[in-house]
């Protein structure tokens, strides 16, 4: 053992009745790493993070956080750990500031200076005196981040932090997470957006109905990614498909809506499109549909398909 892992979860399993929400998954996060747990709805991301926080007890497996376990160390497991599960919840009849003051008490201290700081970070200083019942969804989400930062964590655990935010909110949340990660914080993040994980994370575990479908670096994931796909509409689809015959590395198929779908390496697709134009075929539309990693994500998490080299 060289360096103590921030999170060392091995063989973790949890069932609800007959449903295996999390099935023998292993997630190991090194200090300083930004780690993504990616998966579609119902994959088990939240269930896993709840177990990490001790909110629910795993049926099997062990979870160590900085070497500590719930069995041995109780609530001390969460020393240096902060974050939130799903959308953060607060007492609606208290103000934002009162909520944070109370949580600071439960952390073991009144920290007025730090409280003002974290409110500033999430841009809630002006509204901190308002009751949380009057907060918008995005404001509660930001208060959740403030509540987490209040603990000065070494490990930040965020369950779909951008969920439900508007585009500007998503951008700000990602920027914040990146900034925090840049300051040396270990981040464990769940998401169902490949682009989010790709943008922020170093390592990723992709979950599918409770189990691990892929585990590794974003780089490794990229090498496995299929070619990008494009939706193409032309004035003459029959001739467009004929032209494709001259470009063996480019595949042109028809999707269920009878639209043309082009896949292939980026440069070869570009050459094919140029050829279409040269052949006098009218080009009505050419749009990138899925990024390669997105396509891979769907392949990995689609129950029927499987990918070579995964997991």
């Amino acid at each position: 053992m060289t360096e103590q892992l921030a999170v060392d979860a091995v063989g973790v399993t949890k069932s609800f009745g007959s449903l295996r929400a999390v099935d023998d998954i292993t997630v190991q996060v090194a200090p300083g790493e930004v780690y993504g747990v990616l998966g579609p709805n119902g994959a088990g991301k939240t269930t896993f993070l709840r177990m990490l926080f001790g909110l629910i007890r795993p049926d099997a497996g062990t979870i160590r956080v900085f070497g500590r376990t719930w069995e041995k160390d109780g609530i001390n497991v969460l020393d240096g750990v902060a974050g939130f599960i799903e959308s953060p919840k607060f007492y609606p009849y208290l103000t934002g500031r009162q909520n944070l003051e109370g949580l600071a008490l439960l952390d073991g201290g009144d920290r007025a200076d730090r409280l003002a700081e974290v409110l500033e970070v999430v841009d809630l200083t002006d509204r901190a005196g308002d009751k949380v019942s009057g907060y918008s969804y995005g404001m509660r989400q930001r208060l959740g981040v403030a509540a987490s930062l209040l603990r000065d964590p070494r490990l930040l655990v965020l369950d779909e932090p951008a969920n439900g935010l508007d585009p500007a909110g998503i951008r700000d949340m990602r920027a914040l997470v990146k900034r925090l990660a840049g300051s040396g914080l270990t981040v464990l993040l769940s998401s169902h957006h490949m682009d989010e994980v790709e943008e922020i994370c170093d390592n990723v575990t992709i979950m599918r109905t409770g189990s691990v479908a892929f585990h590794g670096t974003i780089e490794k994931l990229r090498t496995m990614a299929p070619d990008p796909g494009y939706a193409l509409s032309t004035g003459d689809d029959v001739r467009a498909r004929e032209v494709a015959g001259r470009h063996p590395s480019v595949a042109v198929t028809t999707d269920p809506d009878a639209e043309l779908v082009v896949t292939g390496p980026r440069d070869d697709v570009a050459a094919y499109v140029a050829d279409l134009v040269r052949s006098g075929i009218r080009l009505d539309g050419f749009i990138a549909t899925r990024t390669p990693l997105e396509s891979l994500f769907f392949m990995l998490t689609d129950a029927e398909s499987s990918v070579e080299g995964a997991a």
Partner: peptide, 17 residues
Amino acid sequence: QHGTWKTVLTRSTSRGQ
């Protein structure tokens, strides 16, 4: 009712406390 168990139980205070 308020969904705040997860909020208070992810601080430094145990369930027993």
